[in-house]
Structures are given as C-alpha cells and as structure tokens.
C-alpha cells in the first residue's frame, strides 16, 4: 500500500496523538506509588506500550486507583 504525500499528512497526526497518549500514561504511571495502581506497575508498562491506544485508554480508565 502506497501512501502519497497527503496520505502521510493524514496518518502522521494520528500517530502523534497516540504517542502523546502513551507518553502521558507512562508519566502518570511513573509518578504513582505501588498501591495507587491496580496490579503491578511493570504489567501496566507492557500494556501501555504494546496495547497502543487501547492500552493507554485501559490504563487511564481502570488502571488507576481513584482518590489520588
């Protein structure tokens, strides 16, 4: 599949947004104490990096303990 110039311009922002989400998820994770996440922190690192958009979203919605 060939991407033209316009194609690249179209795809690039999508990739950038996904990257931003991933970075924010990792930053948030790194600032948390062990007991402030559900499940081991290392596991979340893998989920966020390998899970792309879905991984980050799952982390944001259910990975963090509320109230902190």
């Amino acid at each position: 599949m060939q991407l033209g110039d316009l194609g690249l311009q179209v795809i690039l922002p999508v990739a950038i947004i996904e990257l931003i989400l991933m970075v924010i998820a990792l930053v948030d994770l790194s600032r948390r104490e062990k007991e402030e996440t559900r499940g081991p922190k290392l596991l979340w690192v893998f989920i966020i990096i390998l899970g792309n958009l879905l991984g980050s979203v799952v982390y944001f919605t259910v990975g963090r303990r509320s109230g902190s």
């Binding site: 179209v10 999508v14 989400l21 958009l53 979203v57």
Partner: peptide
C-alpha cells in the same frame, strides 16, 4: 490526573478515524 488531556485526545482520535479510514478505503 490528566483527564483533561486524555479524554479530549481519545475523542479526537475517534472523530478523525472515520474520515481517515474512508480516505484509505479504496487502497485497502
């Protein structure tokens, strides 16, 4: 807790995913 960043960004992705995939549909 970054809700102000991640929720709008995810909605942005949801919003643009449809025009983008439609655009690439012929190639796909």
């Amino acid at each position: 807790n970054y809700k102000w960043i991640w929720i709008p960004l995810v909605f942005l992705l949801l919003g643009i995913s449809n025009p983008v995939t439609t655009y690439f549909m012929p190639q796909i």
